[in-house]
Simulated scan of single mutants.
Amino acid sequence: MELDQTKTAAVFIALVAVGTLALVVAPMMTTETVLMMVTPSMVVFGLVCLAIGVAHGQYRATH
């Protein structure tokens, strides 16, 4: 499977959506807590990991 920007964005959004839905359905936290605190931190963490992964991939491709 060849990843491009569209597929990467779709998978990223799907992972965050599934994680958010699972936390909303689970009786651990209120929905407001999940939507205002957990989901934004999941997005930021995912973007940081994506940036590190892309940088590592570029490094591996050139060395």
Rank of each mutant, 00 (worst) to 15 (best):
R60C: 06
A55G: 09
G53S: 08
V48C: 06
E32F: 13
T31N: 10
Q58D: 11
M37A: 10
S41Q: 11
V48Q: 01
A61R: 06
A61M: 01
I52K: 03
T33S: 11
T30Q: 13
L47K: 05
M36K: 15
T33R: 14
T31C: 07
V44W: 01
M37Y: 15
V48P: 07
V34R: 06
A51L: 02
P40G: 05
V34I: 08
A61W: 02
T39H: 08
P40A: 00
G53P: 00
T33C: 01
L50A: 09
T31W: 11
C49D: 13
V48D: 06
V38S: 06
T31G: 14
L35D: 00
M42C: 07
G46A: 00
G57C: 02
L47G: 01
C49Q: 03
V38R: 11
L47E: 04
V34K: 01
T33W: 04
T30E: 15
T39E: 09
T31E: 11
L35Y: 07
Y59L: 12
G53M: 00
E32N: 13
M37N: 14
R60F: 10
T39K: 04
S41M: 12
A61L: 07
T39D: 09
I52N: 00
M36V: 13
M42F: 12
L50S: 08
M42D: 04
M36Q: 14
L50R: 01
Q58V: 14
C49P: 01
Q58N: 12
A61T: 00
V44R: 07
L35W: 05
P40V: 06
C49F: 12
S41A: 15
L35H: 02
L47M: 08
C49H: 11
R60G: 02
R60V: 09
G57A: 01
A51G: 10
T33N: 12
